[in-house]
């Protein structure tokens, strides 16, 4: 399978105009858990030219209920384990990995090439931190965040909303893991798919909402 054959197949499904936009895009994913690992697969399948993948964590057995890792990945850095799988799906896109903790200091540098960043952390204070950092310190970057996908409520409660300038929020904005309602694979994946769809539409020059 050559690069040309691979991209011809993507063009057959997505159309030439859309595929050229996807190939020329660079997207960041901050956090590679239930949201981030699913978002990465969706974007690799779209043929996004470059993904910047960042997570300090290693794969734990409690991740396997909803995150795109395998038993064989236990103990590995999530960024590395994910990159290996993404190369298996789409070997012709670029995956840059960062296995370090993201902070307000390093986020602008790590994601400097990205026009769009997906916030995919699990802790609420970290979601707030990256939102503040991207919207105040990265003037031309759009942030697509996920908040509220825990529990077993209807998938229909998960929506995409433009909250403020350069900021889209996916989720039900209510279901909190802190309430003890758990995190279930399908509902987390619905939120991840909302985020990936918003990214897709932004790259195509369409409004996500």
């Amino acid at each position: 399978m050559t690069r040309e054959e691979y991209f011809n197949a993507l063009i057959e499904r997505h159309g030439k105009e859309a595929q050229e936009k996807f190939i020329n895009a660079t997207v960041g994913i901050a956090g590679l858990g239930g949201l981030g690992s699913n978002i990465a697969f969706f974007l690799a399948r779209l043929g996004i030219g470059k993904l910047v993948l960042a997570d300090f964590d290693r794969v734990d057995v409690t991740n396997l209920n909803r995150q795109q890792y395998r038993v064989a990945d236990l103990g590995r850095y999530k960024a590395e384990a994910l990159k290996e799988q993404l190369l298996g799906v789409n070997p012709y896109c670029e995956y840059e990995t960062h296995s370090i903790k993201l902070t307000e200091k390093n986020i602008p540098e790590i994601f400097s090439e990205c026009g769009i960043i997906c916030e995919a952390f699990d802790k609420a204070d970290q979601k707030a931190m990256i939102t503040e950092t991207v919207l105040s310190d990265m003037k031309n970057v759009i942030l697509v965040s996920g908040s509220g996908m825990a529990g077993t409520d209807s998938a229909n409660k998960i929506t995409t909303r433009k909250v403020i300038s350069r900021f889209y929020l996916c989720g039900d904005e209510k279901s909190d893991i802190a309430d003890g309602c758990g995190l279930m694979a399908p509902r987390v994946a619905v939120c991840a798919a909302h985020q990936a769809t918003a990214v897709m539409k932004l790259i195509l020059g369409q409004s996500p909402v």
């Binding site: 995919a120 609420a124 939102t131 503040e132 996908m149 900021f167 209510k174 279901s175 893991i177 802190a178």
Partner: peptide, 25 residues
Amino acid sequence: KRSDFDKVVVKEDDSMEIVNFVGGG
């Protein structure tokens, strides 16, 4: 910025958006 939350005073006719995050991901 969070470090300015204690310093910034909101005035009459200001428009404010508060995004409240919940955990899980």
